[in-house]
Nucleic acid binder design. Structure first.
Length: 123
DNA sequence: CTCTTGACCACTC
DNA sequence: AGAGTGGCCAAGA
């Protein structure tokens, strides 16, 4: 019932759709903008890509791509893919290692403080 | 076109 | 804190 949605503003749409057509490409474009040492959530990426509420789509897009900074995209609340970490402990470990290499602090439980490391896109 | 699936999200217990 | 439930959107069979 909750709709944490907010349709992207005109400028946000323009900025992305002007250069990319497909949703995946839009998502990838957003992911690529995440600076080193910062992280973003799937929901955030999806919204910026013009898909409010499409966090799952963002996940699918990241998964089906290569050479992207996928490690900088996390689940909400800084959850480092906790849900699937059990199914994919290797991937989770790799992600953690990559982030720590960029200066992002990750707790033993795979949590990241979004207040400190969350990416705040400037327009 | 219907049904299932998914690197998700949020609420409730 | 952990599990269950329902909802979101798009892709693929």
């Amino acid at each position: 019932m909750r709709r944490p949605t907010r349709r992207p503003t005109r400028s946000e749409q323009d900025e992305l759709t002007a250069h990319v057509k497909s949703l995946y490409k839009a998502i990838w474009a957003v992911a690529r903008r995440i600076p080193r040492g910062k992280v973003a959530t799937y929901g955030q990426v999806a919204e910026l890509a013009g898909i409010p509420g499409g966090a799952r789509v963002a996940g699918a897009a990241m998964r089906s791509s290569k050479g992207l900074p996928w490690q900088r995209v996390l689940g909400k609340r800084g959850k480092n893919r906790a849900g699937v970490a059990i199914l994919d402990p290797v991937g989770a470990a790799v992600q953690r290692r990559l982030l720590e290499g960029e200066g992002v602090e990750v707790t033993d439980r795979g949590l990241i403080d979004l207040v400190r490391f969350g990416w705040v896109p400037l327009r």
